[in-house]
Design a protein around this nucleic acid. Structure first.
Lengths: 145, 145
DNA sequence: GTGCCACTTCAAGTCGACTTGAGGTCAAGT
DNA sequence: ACTTGACCTCAAGTCGACTTGAAGTGGCAC
C-alpha cells in the first residue's frame, strides 16, 4: 500500500486531520516525511491510531498511551498496567451500577416526594459522603462531532 | 438549628467554600442573606448539596441539575429524566464492561504480541470503528483535592 | 504556467467545573 | 481601639483533548 497523505489517514481512521497533527505534535504518531510541506504517513499509522483509540476507550490519557509505545515505535503493552486499569474500570462499573439502580428506583418509586423514600435517602447519603466518585475520569473517547 | 456561615456549610457538606460561592453564582444554592459581607445559609442547604452531589454522581451536569429544582427551590425530579439517565448509564456500563473484559484478556493473554491475539484484534477493531465511546462524559463527581 | 485549494504553521479559543490570587472589608476577640 | 483573619469580589488560571482561525505555501489538474 502506498503512503498516505493526511486526508487519506483521516478518511481511513476516522480521526480528523487537526487531531492527527495534534497527535504528531504530542509524539503519539509520526509521519515518515514530507512531500513539500505536506506530511506523508506510512499506512501502519492507521493501526496505531486504532491502538490509541482503544487506549482512550479504556480510559487512558494520551500521556499514558504515549508511554505504551517503545521509543522504536512498537507497542510496549504492560500487562500489569492493563490489569490495573481493568480493576479501575471495575470499580467504576460498580459505582455506576449502583447509581443506575438508584436512578431506576427513584424513577419508579411512588413515594409522594423522593425525600420520603428510604432508598432514595440512602443513596443520597452515599453521594453526600463522597462514597461515590473518588476520582473524576473521562470515560469514552472521540467526541466525534 | 441555627443558620450557618460558609465555613460551617463547607464543613458539614464537605464542599469547599469556593465551590459554594460558585454554586451560588450558578443559582444552584442560595444564601438566606448576609451578616455584613458574609453569607448566611439555611441548614437546609446541606441536604440540597447532597442532592447536587447525587446528581453529579449520576452524571448530570450542573446545568441539568439546576433544572431539577423548581423556581421555588423545591426539587422537581422528573422520573422520565431519571429513567433516561439510568438507561444512558446502562449503556456506559456495558461499554466499560466490554472494555474491562478486553483489558483482562489482554493482560492474561500469552500471545507473543498482542497483535497476534484474535481477541485483542477484535477489540481493536471495535475501538477503531468508534463502536465504543460515542459521547465523552464525565463520570464521578467532586475531584476533591 | 497558473490558479485553486488542500495542505501548512502557530496562536488562541472551547468546554465544564472549579480553584487561585490579589486586593479589600469587617465581626469579633483582646 | 486595634488587630486578626475569616470572609468578600472579580478576574484569571487550570486541566485535557482538541478545534478554530488567520495567514501562508506549494502540488497538481488544466
Amino acid at each position: 500500500m502506498a503512503d498516505l497523505d493526511i486526508a487519506a489517514v483521516a478518511q481511513r481512521s476516522g480521526v480528523p486531520a487537526s487531531t492527527l497533527r495534534f497527535y504528531e505534535e504530542k509524539g503519539l504518531i509520526a509521519s515518515v516525511g514530507r512531500r513539500g510541506l505536506r506530511r506523508v504517513f506510512d499506512p501502519g499509522v492507521v493501526e496505531r491510531l486504532a491502538l490509541i483509540a482503544l487506549g482512550r476507550a479504556a480510559g487512558f490519557s494520551l500521556d499514558e498511551i504515549a508511554l505504551m509505545f517503545a521509543p522504536d515505535g512498537r507497542p510496549r503493552i504492560d500487562r500489569q498496567l492493563l490489569a490495573a486499569k481493568a480493576q479501575e474500570l471495575d470499580r467504576t462499573i460498580q459505582r455506576l451500577t449502583a447509581m443506575r439502580d438508584g436512578l431506576r428506583h427513584a424513577a419508579a418509586c411512588r413515594a409522594p416526594s423522593h425525600m420520603e423514600c428510604p432508598t432514595f435517602r440512602r443513596i443520597l447519603r452515599a453521594a453526600a459522603s463522597g462514597a461515590m466518585g473518588e476520582r473524576t475520569r473521562r470515560v469514552a473517547p472521540r467526541p466525534r462531532k
